[in-house]
């Protein structure tokens, strides 16, 4: 897995297929290991995958943009763990998430592989990804509601009166 120096397209990809897969990957990357394991305990995956790239910890240089929208610059590195698995039919699954949790990267890779199997995709979407999205949405809504309660309206005092 290598990354090109800023030559890749900005934002989400245009083709439909990777976009659904990307959404699934985002849900997995944002889930806590505890939530992920809880869902997998309730809905176990087949165990047909083999690891073709062992979970590995490394760095990604995170970029920002000058002024928020201008030219990119290097902000800081972040730890990332990645892993690749393969199914007997040759399908490969990629797992990658911020942090140093090798087990989580492996679970993400396996889920990415099985998600690409037509018969399994629906079950993974409804039994694993939907509940994880639910948890994520609830967490975000809670944050937004708490922050909204600190919304402030300042009154400007007129000078010299």
């Amino acid at each position: 897995m290598t990354s090109s120096q800023g030559t890749s397209p900005r934002g989400a990809p245009s083709t439909g297929e990777p976009s659904a897969r990307r959404t699934a990957m985002a849900t997995l990357a944002n889930a806590t290991i505890a939530d992920l394991e809880a869902r997998l305990a309730a809905h176990p995956l087949p165990q047909e995958h083999t690891i073709i790239r062992q979970p590995e910890i490394g760095l990604v240089m995170v970029r920002g943009r000058a002024g928020g929208t201008g030219a990119p610059f290097n902000l800081c590195e972040a730890t990332v763990t990645r892993c690749v698995v393969a199914l007997p039919d040759g399908t490969t699954g990629f797992g990658q998430c911020l942090g140093r949790d090798k087990h989580k990267a492996l679970l993400c890779a396996a889920l990415d592989a099985y998600w690409q199997q037509e018969p399994l995709q629906e079950a993974i979407e409804s039994e694993i990804l939907a509940p994880l999205r639910n948890i994520e949405t609830k967490r975000k809504e809670q944050t937004k509601a708490e922050v909204a309660a600190t919304k402030v309206d300042f009154f400007t005092m007129v000078r010299g009166e």
């Binding site: 990809p13 990307r22 944002n30 902000l75 490969t92 990629f94 998430c97």
Partner: peptide
Amino acid sequence: VEVSLFVEELGFDVPLGEMTV
């Protein structure tokens, strides 16, 4: 904010998770 990395094998930028900034 979401952090993502372009992965050549996949051909799209892959989400890695969220980062506080």
